[in-house]
Design a protein around this nucleic acid. Structure first.
Length: 681
DNA sequence: TAGAAGCAGATTTTT
DNA sequence: TCTGCTTCTA
């Protein structure tokens, strides 16, 4: 068992060996956090603690599976039953599957995602912005405020509106037995709070609790943890207050800052030895974060050499920035650097575009991390909606999504009628079809009625055969509804069809791997899955700083260091959180780091003039480093070379969309050519 | 009913 | 500048 400790430093050993009571492990960036948590799980099991009483909670599926793997590899003997290691939300789901009846609801609920949530709010017909209402409802739930309390507490007219929308939204969810992401935490808490016996029982079941990324927990997660740990307080939380970057999403940094106040006998262990970055990079990170006041305070110690100093480059505009960075990346990959060790980070996604253009022009393949997620694509959500109706035809929400997809002539008028009758009878639309067929027939056109009947009969038929042909379901679905064909005809059809087939493949895999599982289980599982693990393409990565958390790269470029872009300023912005983002960005770099800024940028249709970010001075990088001014390289009179037309002289430079268009004289012939197709000589 | 045209709004987003 | 929703019209 001592092999566990061979690989750990002193502080890490201390964190692993402290088994009982509350403990806060402050794990700086690159300090071996995952190793420490997994070693701790292994150590608990090695000490005879049954694996079934250990619960490890993470925020992402990716983190959970990585930890599971690493923990299991540390254990010598086969353990009969792997410890429960999952996301907060998955835990909530498992809990609700067993205890939903405590709330008088059935456990065959369906989980909806954020997009679904907004759709529902939209159907409530409000003049307020839907995303704002969605966020406020989330806030209510995460602070355990019921719709009734929200209505009572609302002062301003808009808040009265929001509170009443909240109430109607909740009614809709209960009526359709839907559960949103917040409910996966709020409902378990509610159940535990109202049933003390159950609460004690659950707390006794999980006698050792570990929490990853504790700085990202919100109020609700904190209260849930309190309940779970209530009978033993064996709560081990791991996190870094300097990496708290989800405050805007409800994460409460005070959870980690005040941990030792909430749990007065808590032990605190700091992991400050950094095994990732050169000391030049760490120095900048430490200097930057020093400017924050609201922090526990720790300084990362380097275990590596000084390394190359951080480079700062200033540009005239985003195009020259993109061109230069693309050129440098090209040079790196040409010299044999593994593209997976190169990344470009930005504060807001809007900055990705110029970089993408630059990379495209330089012929550098890249992957964008965290763009549109697989399960959020319209075509995938449509198929999911079909599958949902098959498991539960009373799911009006999913029904509305696909009842006219592919187009079968059921428009707004028909749908409104159907909705009306359902509303008047306080039942689902499918129930209207079952019990009020005559009434429906009178209200809508003959053609529409026929279409609806066929649609519901098809669904019922698939449902009836579900048990015997789980595997063939997909083929039958395609045969009846032809979704692949419908999407195939769209302009970007090819990609969509590929996505659809990918999804069908996932379903088949699931059926093969879990022959006993129901379709419903499959559906709930995928709603909780964010991104597929990125395919291991050998290409460089570009992503937002948020998306880069937990990753590391030998060569890192952070662009857009300008006031207003990074840090973002204005209402709702927290400069300390912005600074923590800067800290996260810098500490992703292992060997080489380049920061860049630009004098101006196109944003929201305007060209904005910009000042350099204060963070540059704060991390001691803006002065004394290389300053490189570049302008657009094509001017009237420049000599250029074209692959086909050869050498020519530029007569005129103009701009088309985001590209430069050149009028070029090739030996007497004038041609209009995009700047990306020629090189300057 | 369905496509076209007009209009507001546009940080970050683990589940 | 671009996107996605709402309103308009055949």
């Amino acid at each position: 068992m001592e092999k566990i400790f061979d690989q750990l430093n002193e502080a890490q050993c201390e964190a692993v060996k402290q088994v009982d009571g509350p403990i806060l492990i402050l794990a700086g960036a690159g300090s071996g956090k995952t190793k420490t948590i997994t070693s701790r799980v292994a150590w608990l099991i090695a000490n005879g603690i049954p694996s079934s009483s250990i619960l490890t909670l993470t925020f992402t599926n990716k983190a959970a599976s990585e930890m599971r793997q690493r923990a299991l590899s540390l254990l010598d003997q086969q353990i009969g039953y792997p410890p429960l290691l999952c996301t907060f939300h998955k835990f909530g789901l498992l809990f609700l599957k067993h205890h939903m009846r405590e709330l008088g609801r059935s456990n065959n609920f369906v989980i909806i995602d954020t997009d679904d949530k907004k759709r529902i709010i939209r159907t409530l017909e409000t003049d307020l912005p839907v995303p704002m209402v969605a966020a406020e409802i989330s806030r209510y739930k995460n602070n355990l405020i019921s719709p009734e309390e929200a209505i009572q507490g609302a002062q301003m007219p808009n808040y009265k509106k929001i509170a009443s929308l909240y109430m109607r939204y909740e009614a809709y969810l209960t009526q359709n037995n839907l559960v949103d992401f917040d409910d996966l935490l709020a409902l378990p808490y509610k159940i535990l709070a109202q049933n003390e016996t159950l609460c004690n029982e659950i707390s006794q079941r999980y006698r050792y609790i570990l929490v990853d990324e504790y700085q990202d927990t919100n109020n609700l997660q904190f209260k849930l943890l309190q309940k779970l740990a209530s009978t033993h307080n064996n709560l081990c939380v791991v996190g870094d207050d300097d990496q708290s970057i989800y405050g805007w999403r409800g994460a409460n940094i005070n959870n980690i800052l005040d941990f030792d106040k909430e749990f007065p006998d808590a032990k605190v262990v700091k992991l400050t030895k950094n095994y990732r970055s050169t000391s030049a990079i760490l120095k900048a990170a430490n200097e930057l974060i020093e400017h924050n006041r609201n922090r526990l305070g720790k300084e990362l110690e380097s275990t590596k050499e000084e390394g190359k100093s951080i480079e700062f480059v200033h540009f005239d505009d985003e195009n020259s920035e993109a061109r230069e960075i693309a050129a440098r990346i090209k040079k790196l990959t040409d010299s044999g650097v593994d593209p997976r060790e190169i990344a470009v980070l930005y504060r807001i996604n809007a900055l990705s575009r110029s970089i993408e253009e630059g990379l495209n022009r330089a012929g550098v393949p890249y992957k964008m991390v965290g763009g549109l997620k697989f399960y959020e694509r319209a075509e995938i959500k449509d198929i999911i909606a079909y599958l949902r109706i098959i498991t539960n035809p009373h799911d009006d929400f999913s029904l509305k999504r696909v009842i006219n997809k592919p187009k079968r002539g059921l428009g707004k008028a028909t749908l409104d009628k159907l909705t009306d009758i359902a509303y008047q009878n306080d039942c689902s639309m499918y129930r209207v079809y079952l019990d009020q067929r005559e009434r429906l027939q009178e209200s809508i056109s003959k053609k529409a009625f026929g279409t609806i009947c066929t649609f519901f009969d098809d669904i019922a038929d698939l449902r009836n055969h579900l048990e015997e042909n789980t595997y063939e379901l997909i083929d039958n679905l395609e045969e009846r509804f032809g979704i692949r064909n419908y999407y195939g005809q769209m302009p970007d059809g090819q990609e969509r069809v590929l996505n659809i087939d990918e999804f069908y493949g996932l379903y088949r895999d699931f059926v093969i791997q879990n022959p006993e599982a129901t379709l419903e289980e499959f559906l709930n599982d995928i709603t909780l899955q964010s991104d597929q693990d990125q395919i291991d393409e050998r290409s460089i990565s570009i992503m937002s700083i948020h998306a880069s958390k937990g990753l590391e790269f030998e060569h890192l470029f952070v662009i857009g260091l300008e006031e207003g872009f990074f840090p973002l300023v204005g209402d709702g912005c927290d400069i300390e959180e912005e600074r923590r983002l800067g800290y996260v960005a810098i500490t992703r770099a292992k060997k080489e780091l380049l920061l860049s800024s630009s004098s101006s940028r196109y944003y929201k249709g305007k060209r904005a003039q910009l000042q350099k970010s204060r963070f540059l001075a704060e991390c001691g990088v803006s002065k004394g480093s290389l300053k490189l001014e570049r302008t657009t390289s094509f001017k009237k009179g420049s000599l250029v070379r074209h692959k086909i037309f050869g050498v020519g002289r530029v007569l005129e430079v103009s701009k088309v969309k985001r590209e430069y268009k050149l009028k070029i004289n090739f030996g007497g012939t004038q041609r209009d050519i995009l700047a990306s197709f020629v090189e300057r000589i």
